[in-house]
Amino acid sequence: MEPYLIAIVILVGITSLLSLLLCLAVIRRLREHTKLIDALYEVVGNGLPSAHAGPSLGDVVGEFDATTVDGDRVARDLLPDGTVVAFLSPECRGCREQLPELAAWAAGQDRARVLAVVDGHAADPAHLVTTLAPVAQVVIADVSNPVARAFGVESFPTFFEVAAGGRLLAMEAKISRLPAGTAA
């Protein structure tokens, strides 16, 4: 084989190896950035107490009256002690990611103690509704409806735990962080 061909093969091999190493480094950095962005998204935009405009822990949420997809009435004064209220949107990536966990957790609860408020103003809410309706009371509404206003919801997902009468016990961006949402 000609010496210049050997040199070209070696040069192409080294260039390919360097390109592969560079690609692996970029992929690693992108994964780190994805984790940082996800953490920032969770802190800034997911209904944590610091970004919450509604009642504070211990306060009573505002009055509301709504009808579920099953035609049942839900209101602040009708909520049983320890009710978990989840505000979700079909367009919310965090909502879609937490949907299986929420549905599995709710399946082990009294359906009357789980209220899911699904943003109906967003894209088709059918998937959220069909997944949650067997295990939770589901209200389709948007963030300007009386339920969302009563809780001061500004972003999705947001999870609340309330006592009988609507006293706010906890609010979190993940169901697993609520006292009621932890595995028994």
Rank of each mutant, 00 (worst) to 15 (best):
L48H: 00
S144Y: 10
P49T: 08
P3F: 13
V85K: 06
V117N: 01
A106F: 04
L99W: 04
L128H: 11
M171D: 08
D142T: 02
D124P: 05
F64C: 02
L22T: 14
D77H: 15
S50C: 10
A148N: 00
E63G: 09
T182N: 06
G82A: 07
A53C: 02
A141W: 00
F151A: 02
A141L: 01
P134H: 04
L79A: 08
A112L: 13
F87D: 07
F151S: 02
R29D: 12
R29V: 13
E32N: 12
D81Y: 11
T68M: 02
L17H: 12
P3T: 10
L168K: 03
L20Q: 13
A133K: 15
Y4P: 06
V9S: 08
A53Y: 01
A123G: 09
D81F: 10
A39M: 13
C23K: 13
M171A: 09
A7C: 02
L78H: 08
V12N: 06
A150N: 03
S19H: 13
R111C: 06
R93E: 14
S16R: 15
R113T: 14
I37K: 12
V143G: 08
L178A: 07
A170D: 15
V114S: 03
Y41H: 14
A25N: 12
E172M: 12
P80Q: 11
R113K: 15
S155R: 15
G166S: 11
R29M: 09
V9C: 08
E2V: 07
R113E: 10
V60S: 08
L169Q: 12
E2Q: 14
V84L: 10
P157R: 06
A116W: 04
L99H: 05
P146R: 09
L17P: 05
A112G: 07
G13D: 09
D70V: 09
A116H: 03
Q137R: 15
E172R: 15
V118Y: 02
K35W: 14
R167W: 04
E63R: 11
T34E: 13
V138R: 01
S19E: 10
T34A: 12
A180I: 04
